[in-house]
């Protein structure tokens, strides 16, 4: 099954995230990634949902029934700019320090905080880049990792 990306414009009202996510889970569908944030329009938020659904048409229809959902667009993967942000806290010691920083810098991750025995990196990129960075850091001992959820925008008008 291939991934499908839904870009959902919603009214910025209390409970709208719960309505959208419960509509999806209620019909027995899984979400790979969900992100939500404000848009350039006052009172409107945008959700980006990534799923692997055959039944995406039915999900779109069910979501469209929600009063607070204004518009749903399924993004064409070939015409989409997609990105995700990651924060990763990894342990360091005298032996590993140089190697960690080198690998991070080769991955284009930015170091945002360094302590006695840990470092925190930020990386923005495709989900694959983020996955790759995670596996690079794994041998050094990942203490904590947060990913922001994928966001996407159509690369044409």
């Amino acid at each position: 099954m291939s991934e499908r990306i839904l870009s959902i414009l919603v009214e910025d009202k209390p409970g709208v995230l719960a309505r959208v996510s419960s509509t999806i889970s209620r019909r027995g569908f899984n979400i790979n990634s969900l992100s939500v944030g404000p848009t350039n329009i006052e009172g409107r938020s945008k959700m980006t949902i990534v799923t692997e659904l055959d039944a995406v048409e039915q999900v779109k229809k069910q979501l469209n029934k929600l009063v607070n959902v204004i518009k749903i667009v399924e993004l064409d993967p070939n015409m989409t700019i997609e990105t995700e942000v990651l924060l990763l806290k990894v342990s360091i010691n005298k032996d590993s320090q140089t190697s960690v920083i080198e690998k991070a810098s080769l991955s284009n991750a930015t170091s945002v905080d360094v302590g006695q025995d840990f470092a925190i990196f930020e990386l923005t990129g495709s989900s694959k880049d983020l996955d790759k960075f995670e596996s690079l850091m794994k041998p050094f001992g990942i203490i904590e990792m947060v990913r922001g959820g994928r966001i996407a925008i159509q690369s044409n008008l």
């Binding site: 409970g15 719960a18 419960s22 029934k65 009063v67």
Partner: peptide
């Protein structure tokens, strides 16, 4: 109530 009735209503308000 809003949460409990979410899946049992067309829409709801607090």
């Amino acid at each position: 109530t809003v949460g409990l009735s979410m899946a049992a209503t067309k829409h709801n308000y607090l």
